[in-house]
């Protein structure tokens, strides 16, 4: 075959191949490379064909999942979220932490499936018991999205068992008690944080919480003493000095700023002169 004819066949063949490939791609309406990865069997079986390279395969599936789930043009792309993250990646490499975190975020924030996110994080915690970031993520999910403060508190507590847990975890933990209404415990932890603070910022923030919580706790205590006075004397006290005279108080307590508490003459409730420093208290 002459050179010219051979080159012609080469060129035509190449163009034909390229165009038909494009046509097939359009027919399949596939706009995500590696979409067939959605049909992967569970990681347990996949492990058998990785021959000692499970870590790498998990990495590759993870990288693919990032491309896939950040492609906003794909409709209904959240159908197999659980399959990809929990059944494949987590089974192949249970100690790979990023997929738990990123996967749960995609599930919760983008797909609105908090239940799947929690399932994934629970699986991660089971497989990696000593790690702080997974229970922290779960706790944050409870706190921020589900507003389930008891759940959040438990998760933060779990996270704190890891000596590497950073300081904000402790702060959130302390704050959860407050949200649950258990001001005393919250105060105790916030006080600890304040006493062991190693930076001005932390000292300042924790002081603000301690300040407010102390006020709340003190007012609660004082309200209790007022009720006690009423039971004993049969009438409401008019000033805090009454309580002192009745032997219920040693002396007039001061608030964290040093100003004394007083009784509101109109309502008969204990009041504080200082204001709360933080919103929401």
């Amino acid at each position: 075959m002459g050179t010219f004819r051979a080159l012609l066949v080469l060129l035509l063949g190449g163009l034909t191949a390229a165009s038909s490939a494009l046509r097939v791609e359009r027919l399949r309406q596939v706009n995500a490379p590696g979409h067939h990865l959605l049909y992967l069997p569970s990681g347990r079986y996949l492990k058998a064909v990785t021959f000692g390279y499970e870590g790498l395969v998990a990495d590759l599936v993870y990288i693919w999942s990032i491309q896939y789930y950040s492609n906003y043009q794909i409709q209904d792309r959240y159908t197999y979220l659980d399959q990809v993250y929990r059944r494949v990646i987590a089974e192949l490499d249970p100690h790979f932490l990023d997929p738990y975190l990123v996967g749960s975020m995609i599930m919760s924030v983008e797909a609105g499936r908090d239940d799947l996110a929690m399932l994934l994080l629970k699986e991660g915690m089971e497989k990696n018991p000593g790690v702080w970031i997974l229970p922290f993520q779960a706790g944050f999910l409870c706190y921020n999205k589900l507003h389930d403060y008891a759940c959040a508190r438990d998760f933060f507590q779990q996270a704190l068992r890891d000596p590497e847990a950073p300081a904000p975890v402790r702060r959130l933990y302390a704050e959860m008690y407050n949200r649950l209404g258990d001001r005393r415990t919250s105060l105790k932890y916030w006080a600890e944080i304040h006493d062991t603070a190693d930076s001005d910022y932390v000292r300042q923030v924790s002081w603000m919480h301690v300040h407010d919580l102390k006020i709340d706790v003190d007012l609660e205590d004082l309200a209790g003493l007022v009720r006690r006075y009423r039971e004993l004397r049969g009438e409401s006290p008019r000033r805090l000095e009454d309580l002192v005279r009745a032997g219920l108080l040693a002396r007039i307590p001061t608030d964290p700023e040093g100003k004394p508490y007083f009784l509101d003459p109109a309502t008969g409730q204990a009041r504080c002169e200082s204001r709360h420093l933080l919103q929401g208290h």
Partner: peptide, 10 residues
Amino acid sequence: LLTVGGEEKI
């Protein structure tokens, strides 16, 4: 460019 986290492991 391709991944979120896990670079060291990958």
